[in-house]
Simulated assay, not measured.
Amino acid sequence: MEIVTSFVYPPPPSILLNTMSVVGLVSLAKVGWSEVRGNHLKYSKFNNNKSSSSSSSPPPQPQKHGLGSFSSRTGMLLLYTPAFLAAASSFFLVPSDDLRFLLLKSALALHFFKRIFEVMFVHKYSGEMAIDSALTITTSYFSSTALMLYSQSFTLGLPEPHFDLIPLGIAMFVVGIVGNLYHHVLLAKLRSEDGTKEYKIPKGGLFDTIICPHYLFEILVFWSFFMVSQTIYSFTFAMGTTFYLVGRSYATRSWYLSKFDDFPKHIKALIPFVF
């Protein structure tokens, strides 16, 4: 226990936070395992409505979604906007001159602002997103953002952890957000200007060694939140997000293998030369 408290603040006196730390971790790990098993959240290439690829494989049959669907751009905006508003409003609703709290607010707000910017000006869309998947993801992003900030409020006035991870967190955040944006731009360049939903094997950057470098850098961003905050809740959410994106990247590589006969077998899912 002493080793743990050298890196994180003690558990907050909050049944809600302590419960959600466990529930969030288990839920995200379960969703990640579902991705591996083929039960995907229905967005991007895993929303099979009107999807196609440049391979000779026949187009998949349309799937019905429980609550219907709407445009991918609308869905993606729904994913990120509530979390961004939660982070941005925290500057006014929970004012504090604590450096760690200020850095966490800023990192969360900048991350979700970047995602909204990408939705509006970087990504190209041609399909739809299932409403139930959109609601699941936006609820996760919004609740985790609010709970990370709420958890941080309990650290005000407490002694700092023995190991200060803020410098590492800042460096990890910069690398993660820049790397994620760069690979999203590469993905966007693959899409046709006329909006045709035609998938190609990504190339350039880390795409030459792994199929999901954007997920790898997104994982770095969520671990940077933990490094900056050093709370138990931010740790469990970073761990849960890692489990989910590991499962999603595994499913993504399997999808490319099934759709493209010429997919390079040496390209891994998430970690170069390893996985």
Rank of each mutant, 00 (worst) to 15 (best):
A238T: 11
F225Y: 13
E2W: 10
P60A: 13
R37F: 02
S89K: 13
S143R: 12
V4N: 03
A87T: 10
S72R: 05
I170L: 00
Y9K: 09
S106R: 00
V175N: 00
A86H: 10
S140Q: 12
I166D: 02
M1N: 14
E35N: 11
P58G: 04
D97E: 12
S72A: 15
E2C: 13
Y250L: 03
E160C: 14
F112Y: 09
P213C: 03
A171P: 06
G247Y: 07
P95T: 01
G169P: 06
A134I: 04
K30W: 12
F7S: 00
I170Q: 01
S90F: 09
D208Y: 00
Y182Q: 08
D208T: 02
A188R: 01
L99V: 07
L85T: 01
K30D: 09
P13R: 06
N49D: 08
K45Y: 14
L147P: 00
E118Q: 01
F243T: 01
S44F: 14
S153A: 08
F225Q: 14
N48P: 05
G32N: 00
S34E: 13
T5L: 15
L103W: 02
P264K: 11
E218H: 02
Y215L: 09
W223Y: 12
S96F: 05
Y43A: 05
A83W: 10
G247H: 07
Y244D: 05
A83H: 13
